[in-house]
Nucleic acid binder design. Structure first.
Lengths: 109, 109
DNA sequence: TGACGGTATGTCCGATTCAGCATAACTTCT
DNA sequence: AGAAGTTATGCTGAATCGGACATACCGTCA
């Protein structure tokens, strides 16, 4: 997974509003990263709207509150797998998820 | 991630056509699993259509041929992360991916 | 039949992710 | 200000995933 690149970015801070300009990320990697951002925002919106706390969601998933916090922060080291599980657990439909993905703008170079 | 359940299924063979009836999988887990199946099929279709070999795709991703084979087989131990990277690398658009996800039928119990 | 390109399987080991826990940093009350 | 509830950050041990290899299993073509 190209450890070097990840390491570089990880220590670089990582927390870019709109997710463009990722020197060093391949096209594909950048796309995935952007998807994660979009979906994590979506997760937060839906969770808040449903008035569920991170802790409750964590319990439901068999995960931990800190994980959820990181998920929603769009932090590194979170997998799409957990993100999707969280979305489903929050009650977000496949339809809604698809909609979000479609709205993903290509941050391409 | 409920290791116990995974272990159980892993050894159970795993290879179910339409992906329903997964005793032991939670709602959310089942949904994710089904998404993986749908997307892996999609990956294969697009790759074949583009006349790219697994080896070529692997190179492009910095992965290995065997990983791609497993991806397309919908095998365990493949993450959505790699799957999405592969889809993008194959040239599948976010739009198309969204379409696939929308077509995901709830295999719910 | 044999060679060959492509795909499937299985095993290793190193790297990454996870859950859990501790503890800050807010917020919002009273 | 203090308390309670929620979210953010760090760290650690244990489990999982990823790439590389080896090798088997096809089809196909000469």
């Amino acid at each position: 997974m190209n450890t070097a690149k990840k390491k570089r970015l990880r220590s670089a801070g990582w927390k870019v509003g709109t997710a463009d300009a990722f020197l060093g990320l391949s096209e594909d990697e950048a796309r995935v990263v952007e998807m994660k951002l979009v979906l994590s925002e979506s997760l937060r919106r839906h969770r808040v709207k449903k008035r569920i706390t991170q802790l409750e969601l964590a319990r439901k998933l068999g995960s931990s509150q800190s994980r959820i916090a990181k998920l929603e922060a769009g932090a590194f080291g979170v997998t799409l797998d957990l993100l999707f599980r969280a979305l489903f657990a929050t009650g977000v439909s496949a339809d809604e998820i698809a909609r979000q993905i479609r709205h993903t703008r290509r941050s391409a170079a």
